[in-house]
């Protein structure tokens, strides 16, 4: 099959970008989307043009490195699928595809389709953990955890930190990502002692990074390759309000979490 691509090319963080058209023939329906870009890049190298820069690593839908907006949809048209797991059989022969990087103030473009998502790391650094010193843990089975709680925690923990939720949101809110971590840890007995401070600190950092507020569009869940549920956002909001009532929210000025 063949495809026509319009790819966002941008030489660096401050350079102006533009769409460049490429016709790629000789691709097969069994190829992954990134393998198709590999083929194009090999052709570009053959013509001594610069290959398209994009992030990728595992190519199994788990590391969260890949991600581009394809015809207006983060990770493309297939439900619950990362860009690297998307296959060309999802597109008709001769398809015309517009490919762009995540667009969000908190995710500046570094080059072509590569963006800087380190804001996510800083949100986790602000509180997305359970403080447990190596070696101080009690026997693993000393605390039972109801299977449904463990399963729900796992549903939330499945987030791969790709950023598609931010790219999909009209406000570029990161609330689904933050809610996934707050819920994962908040659902487990081990996460209780820091539950209130965690949600406040993470939401505060999220606001400081320049992510927008959540106004309940639900686009995030539709784009999320791991189908993280917006129910977790409701859970975060409850935790946030509770923490605020208990007076732990004094430092948090932003309202991204409580909207």
């Amino acid at each position: 099959m063949r495809v026509t691509l319009h790819v966002w090319r941008q030489a660096g963080p401050v350079a102006l970008g533009k769409f460049v058209r490429y016709d790629v023939s000789d691709v097969s329906a069994d190829m992954s989307f990134l393998e198709m870009l590999d083929v194009l890049n090999q052709q570009l190298i053959g013509r001594r043009e610069e290959p398209i820069a994009f992030d990728h690593d595992c190519r199994e839908g788990i590391c969260g490195a890949c991600g581009m907006v394809i015809n207006g949809r983060p990770h493309g048209p297939q439900r619950a699928t990362t860009t690297c797991q998307l296959h060309l059989r999802s597109f008709p022969d001769g398809a015309e595809l517009w490919i762009e990087p995540w667009r969000a103030r908190a995710f500046p473009v570094l080059k072509d389709l590569v963006v800087d998502r380190s804001a996510f790391d800083r949100v986790i650094q602000a509180g997305g953990f359970i403080s447990v010193r190596t070696g101080s843990a009690p026997e693993a089975n000393s605390v039972a955890v109801a299977k449904q709680d463990a399963d729900l925690a796992m549903d939330a923990a499945a987030c791969i930190g790709c950023g598609a939720c931010v790219a999909a949101c009209p406000n570029a809110s990161a609330l689904l990502f933050v809610a996934a971590k707050v819920s994962h840890l908040g659902l487990l007995p081990q996460g209780q002692p820091e539950r209130a401070s965690r949600v406040v600190n993470m939401v505060t950092q999220m606001d400081a990074e320049g992510f927008g507020a959540c106004t309940n569009h639900g686009e995030c869940m539709a784009a999320c390759p791991k189908e993280i549920s917006i129910d977790f956002i409701a859970r975060l909001n409850r935790d946030y309000v509770k923490a605020a009532v208990r007076g732990k929210a004094h430092a948090a000025q932003g309202n991204g979490g409580a909207a």
Partner: peptide
Amino acid sequence: ARIIDQCVAQGVPFAREYGGLL
């Protein structure tokens, strides 16, 4: 054995049986 203890304490959501144990 201590690795499992450490990871559970960190909040790693290991699979559990209906009785709540690992």
